[in-house]
Design a protein around this nucleic acid. Structure first.
Lengths: 184, 184
DNA sequence: TGCTTTTTCAACACAGTGTCAATAAAATAT
DNA sequence: ATATTTTATTGACACTGTGTTGAAAAAGCA
């Protein structure tokens, strides 16, 4: 059975080359502010007009890159919460180690507005699922999900930007030390 | 006795008008990405060349604005830590209420690179002073100052950006609920 | 008053954005 | 295999913004 949505391989190739060009440029100079459509098209060896054939503007491209990374990340995190075999501390370490994989890319993309929203949503849904699994109902002496997730977001952002020398295990330990038991 | 540093009142006036123009533009459109030297000069009713007479570029101006705000903020926080009369919870509320004052400006300036560094430094030194006052020596089962400050930074950034409907008292309560006693 | 500094103004070269029309090339359909 | 559709290239265009410069006007100072 043939696909109903047949996509021109040229369009696919162009989009891939443009995305790869972004990572190539960021590897050269890890500053999101240095990215321009002009540079990306040049690095991809495509015409600048071709860029606008596939993306609205620079932010549109970055938005899609961030979206794809978080789709991948969410898929990995999902089954982790089902596993009862692992201890809660091990679960936390595994969760953090997924971020560790992406740390170079994340350290740059974190400046993009959409990134924090995605990360925040992932943290919130993860916290909610863990609360359900442990029958912790909120609103009775338990900090709100917004507060806990924003707090964790702060730690992770510091980690991938300025604390890259620390392992996922170390960060997990520190988090365990800091929060009350209900939040781990 | 005359001042040794006599500054031309015209220069003072121009710098003030440029800074005021920034706040005026941000009030119209709270997006740091919308700020341009061109718009600032126009709003200040000054020539664009005059801008470059006083500031290197847009970032230089924003850097100075952020610096001035944090000088003011630091001056207010300093004596707070000396007061033994207030409870620790009251101290936390007062600390947070200083941020509440600046919340509109902060919600925008938080996007500026220098802002997070300043805020992080303020949080770190505040945590260190509170630890000293309570004889909590680190490195023995206590989370590092980096972790605690980045975590608090996350909460504050969420608060001033997406949680502006909550009072300083509410945020202080939530923080109290979330962290272990040693970190409050 | 004269001297100095600041401000203005117009102009310049530059980098980047987003669009368009004409043409070329590649992919798909018949 | 050829015709048709889609995508890509190219050069050009108008636009916004940056940072600098030189000369003239205005304001401050002594």
């Amino acid at each position: 059975m043939p696909e109903h949505k047949r996509i021109d391989p040229r369009a696919l190739r162009s989009k891939k080359m443009l995305k790869d060009a972004v990572f190539s440029l960021l590897a050269d100079h890890p500053e999101i502010s240095q990215l321009t459509v002009q540079k990306i098209a040049k690095r991809a060896e495509l015409n600048r007009a071709t860029f606008y054939l596939h993306y609205e503007d620079l932010n549109d491209l970055l938005r899609q890159i961030v979206h794809e990374i978080f789709d991948d990340l969410s898929m990995k995190v999902e089954p982790l919460l089902q596993l009862k075999s692992e201890s809660e501390q091990e679960q936390l370490v595994t969760f953090l180690s997924y971020f560790y994989e992406y740390r170079q890319v994340f350290a740059v993309l974190v400046e993009h507005p959409g990134f924090k929203k995605h990360l925040s949503n992932l943290l919130k849904s993860t916290i909610e699922k863990r609360r359900e699994a442990r029958n912790i109902n909120s609103a009775k002496g338990v900090a709100s999900v917004d507060i806990v997730s924003s707090s964790l977001l702060g730690v992770i952002m510091w980690w991938i930007k300025d604390g890259t020398e620390y392992s996922a295990e170390y960060i997990a330990d520190q988090i365990t030390l800091m929060y009350k038991r209900e939040y781990l």
